[in-house]
Simulated scan of single mutants.
Amino acid sequence: MNLVRSEFLKIRTTNAWWLFALGAFGMLALTFFINAVGAHFTLTEAPPEGADPQVAATYNEVYQAANLYTSGQFFGLLFVLLLGIVVITSEFQHQTVTTTFLTTPHRTAVIVAKFVASALAGFGFWLFTTALNIPATIIFMSAEGFSNHLGDTAVIRAIGLNLLAYVLWGILGVGFGVLIRSQIGATVTAVVLYLIGTIAGAVFFTLIANWLDWEWFEDLQFGLPSIASGLMVSGTNIPGQPQYWVGAVVLVAWVVATGVIGTMITRTRDIS
């Protein structure tokens, strides 16, 4: 616990956390506005005749409610990822890692403390965004004349799994930062992979699946952690997509893999 408190002290005494929080707030406001506009039209209109089943499923009230309650997840997870990266790479950036490991020779304990601190920071980001999303969604749904669905199991599940996603992405950031020790290199690479990689991956798997007529191949896109996170918070099952729990399993697998690899590398790599 002393190590965890130390990591929190490092986070609190830098500008990174509130800059990321400010960015998450800005993107949350934008995302909620976009989701609310989309929900307004889908909730007040019937699905177009002959619409694709995946599109028609988004006209469901529960789906739209879950989407609104978890607004801002995509960019919120990115900021949590970056914060986790900074937690570990700042040690190398400012050359304090030697002092850290001399003070606490057990490197595994240090890395675990960083995992815990980043996970709790992820929880803080989730709490912040959810505290804004819940009243905003209740007001919007009431204004539209619909139930807020806050008592529905699917909606509560989406909010809970959103918490899990935020916590796991904080851990994932630390693991990623261990692999690329340069703070600039790690943050730039993470942003590119997260934003461009997500879009490129989804397009690639979809195009190949349509070209070769392999329906199963399109589902491989859910192996990407960012897309898996979105699957976790879907309020209803979308036809042709895996179940929500598949996203959770995929994300946990990514976190375990990066966490174990990151810890092993830190235990054996020269820090000089």
Rank of each mutant, 00 (worst) to 15 (best):
F25T: 15
V37P: 06
L43I: 10
M27H: 07
E45R: 14
F33I: 11
G26Q: 09
F25H: 00
F25P: 06
L30E: 09
G26A: 12
W17A: 06
F41P: 04
L30I: 13
G26S: 07
L43N: 10
G38F: 03
V37L: 03
L19Y: 10
A29C: 14
L30W: 11
L19R: 06
G26T: 00
A39N: 02
V37E: 12
F25A: 15
L19K: 03
G23R: 00
N15Y: 12
P47I: 04
L43R: 10
A21H: 02
G23E: 00
F25N: 09
M27G: 05
A39H: 10
T44G: 14
L28N: 08
T31A: 12
N35D: 15
A21G: 09
G23V: 03
A21L: 15
A29I: 13
A24G: 07
F20D: 04
L28G: 02
F20I: 05
V37Y: 04
N15D: 04
L19G: 08
F41Q: 10
A36S: 13
A16M: 10
A36F: 07
F25G: 02
N35Q: 13
L30Q: 07
F41N: 07
G26W: 10
I34C: 07
F33W: 09
A29K: 01
L43W: 02
W17I: 07
W17T: 03
T42N: 09
F20M: 14
A24P: 11
G26M: 05
L30S: 10
E45L: 13
L19E: 05
F41I: 07
I34K: 06
T42L: 14
A36L: 08
A29G: 08
G23C: 08
F33Y: 11
T42H: 08
F41L: 09
L22W: 04
P47T: 12
G23A: 12
L30C: 09
L19P: 03
F33S: 08
A39L: 06
F25S: 13
L28Q: 06
F32Y: 13
W18L: 12
T44A: 13
T42S: 11
L19H: 00
A29M: 13
G26H: 04
L28K: 09
T31E: 00
L43S: 05
T42F: 09
F32I: 01
F33L: 06
G38V: 02
A29Y: 01
G38W: 03
L28P: 01
E45I: 07
F33Q: 05
N15L: 14
G23N: 08
A46P: 04
G38A: 13
A36C: 09
G23W: 03
E45A: 15
L19W: 12
T31F: 05
F32M: 08
L22C: 09
W17R: 01
A36Q: 06
F32C: 07
W18A: 08
M27V: 14
I34E: 04
G26F: 10
A36N: 08
F20K: 04
F25E: 06
W18E: 08
A46G: 02
G38E: 09
P47G: 05
F32A: 00
F32W: 14
M27C: 10
F20P: 03
A21I: 01
A24F: 01
